[in-house]
Amino acid sequence: MPIDRPHSVSVAGVVIDDAGRALLIQRRDNGHWEPPGGVVEAGETIPDALQREVLEETGVKIALPASLTGVYKNMTRLIVSLVFRCEAADGSPATGPETRAWRWAARDEVDELASEAYAIRVLDAMDTMNPPAVRAHDGVRLI
């Protein structure tokens, strides 16, 4: 089956606070709640992209290394996302050009805020007992 465009790779960081809550952002472009992240740029390492994206979208600098908690493929948009559990090293959450709002979400709040395809990323990162998850979705629902 021919592919008319290549896959892209993105990273997302699920920053966990001392109370076990995850830092979620509400995107300015579509209003969706999700963990901060974005596309890995050409010439950029995965850890550098992770640190840059979390800082750009939250104002929080994360400690490296971060733990890989899942690999997710958007089958519709051909995006492979690497999701990491992160710890804040410096800074305080803030809004910015890409972020309308932010909040610390407890495990039971994640499903209420985020679509299934993004909530599972956060929940997988909150569950440190499992090996990294490998999942596929259509942009909204798991498949």
Rank of each mutant, 00 (worst) to 15 (best):
V134F: 03
T76I: 09
T128W: 02
E44C: 00
I46N: 02
S10D: 14
E87W: 01
E56V: 12
P97A: 15
V122K: 02
E87V: 12
V9L: 15
I25L: 14
I3F: 14
I46H: 04
D111E: 12
Y72V: 02
L64E: 10
I62D: 02
E34K: 13
S115W: 06
K61S: 15
T76W: 03
L78P: 00
P47Q: 09
V134A: 15
S67H: 09
E56I: 06
A101R: 15
R28N: 14
D108W: 02
I143C: 04
W104T: 11
W33A: 08
V71W: 00
E44R: 01
N74T: 12
A119M: 08
D90M: 05
E116G: 04
W104G: 11
L64I: 10
C86G: 08
A42I: 04
D29F: 12
K73Q: 13
G70C: 08
N30Y: 01
D138R: 02
I79H: 02
A94M: 13
K61D: 14
I3C: 07
E44K: 00
Q26T: 11
G70F: 01
L64A: 08
R107A: 11
R141Q: 10
D124W: 00
T128L: 07
G96W: 03
I46S: 03
M75I: 12
W102T: 15
P6E: 10
R85W: 00
I25A: 09
T69R: 15
N130S: 13
D138A: 01
L55E: 13
